[in-house]
Design a protein around this nucleic acid. Structure first.
Lengths: 228, 228
DNA sequence: AAAACCATCCGGATTTATACGTAGGGGAAT
DNA sequence: ATTCCCCTACGTATAAATCCGGATGGTTTT
């Protein structure tokens, strides 16, 4: 068992109006009356904390976000990464079950929960869309259970690379916004194993690394089969 | 990495009208017009398969159910156990993401999806309740991610025992409906490690086993702290 | 009833995968 | 240029998986 140091984050309130930016956007095409406000977060800044009351629903505009749980001794599990265009923080309960932090400097839209709830009362289509997103998050979590419970280190890495590639449009070429430690905490490994795994996949001609974070997939079929 | 043999199950259609029982019950108190039909499943019988089209929503009446994913080489991850009173199989998508099997001989209520969908259109309260259940399943899965990714074998067992105790009313005394292998596949361990862990927890005076499946918790505080 | 069978469980020895600790290198930021 | 992270490399440590043998209990067969 290993212990990781916890980075302390500026524990400021979620909504700091100094970050206010005067742009806004509708939540869904089908509910144009619900508009969000944009905020900027710096790398590693907390967006909301575990067990914190739910006030908003969030959408990534640029950058990247991770949701995570941390144990008292520092062990951490990242639930999921969110890239531009994706929603997060839409637990239906009163409190968040995971915390959310910016992986890199990020711009995020915040939508007021009260507005969302009111909309869901009126607009059945929008309510269904919210439910769909929750169900999609559940599906992702269930897939990740198999990865964490039963897959080998290399299989986890392959699955991760394929997932990243998918969310970048399957072009086999992308920039990782997160550190090796983040990847490790997402895949239930140590950062060293992640590093070793990347090296091994390079040796197998499955991918190419240009610097630490620029990835070129060389054998998508191989990676897909390995990540299963 | 280990490989487990897959038990072949009778691949009969989900709905076998020979199992028909003439009892029925409403889905929710708030939607008495939606009634379910009871079916019986024997131990290890498949209720629905991964990637199978979603036709019903299910409620456990007696017995127990597991949902799981299986890899081609036999590695298996159980997503969750469902005990009497709990709903399962309510993915919103067109297809199930996990398969479901009876852990023991079980009686299950089936509710037609078309009825559910129609109800959700009319009854906002019921629609919200469905969404709440999906969100609760998501919360459970997220908690389980931390367990699978970062907890030790003993911590996993402690968390499992506390979870089982909770769903039996926190009385510190219950019967496990599932085998050691099922527990192992739920916790991402081998059945040997599960067995050893139980022995160790007995040595620590944290619990008592009467036979393999009858559990008496002797130190709930200790187990709770360990399972964190 | 006795025997056979089967599934399940337990314990020890061994192996293996992965975590851990330390050291060193490289790139970006100050 | 220097500092500071972050990443990589390698040797070691260890938790858990694997492999073995044997005990137990329930069910079916004779």
């Amino acid at each position: 068992m290993f212990v990781q140091p916890i980075e302390t984050t500026s524990n400021q309130p979620i909504v700091d109006w100094r970050d206010f930016a005067p742009c806004a956007a509708p939540l869904f095409a089908c509910a144009p009356e619900v508009v969000g406000t944009s905020f900027n977060y710096v790398r590693d800044e907390e967006i909301y904390g575990e067990r914190e009351d739910t006030q908003f629903i969030y959408k990534v505009i640029s950058g990247a976000v991770r949701t995570s749980k941390i144990m008292r001794d520092g062990r951490r599990q990242i639930g999921r990464f969110y890239l531009p265009g994706e929603f997060f923080g839409l637990e239906l309960g009163k409190q968040h079950n995971l915390s959310a932090e910016a992986v890199a400097d990020s711009k995020i839209f915040l939508f007021k929960r009260r507005q969302i709830e009111a909309m869901a009362q009126r607009n059945m289509e929008a309510a269904r869309e919210m439910w769909l997103m929750t169900a999609d998050h559940l599906r992702h979590a269930e897939d990740h259970l198999l990865l964490l419970g039963r897959k080998t280190a290399l299989e986890r890495l392959a699955a991760f690379l394929i997932e990243m590639d998918m969310s970048h449009g399957n072009c086999g070429l992308f920039e990782l916004p997160m550190s090796r430690r983040d990847i490790a905490d997402y895949l239930g490994l140590t950062l060293e194993t992640v590093s070793r795994g990347f090296s091994e996949l390079q040796k197998k001609q499955a991918l190419e690394l240009d610097g630490a974070r620029h990835v070129v997939l060389r054998n998508r079929a191989f990676l897909g089969a390995m990540g299963a």
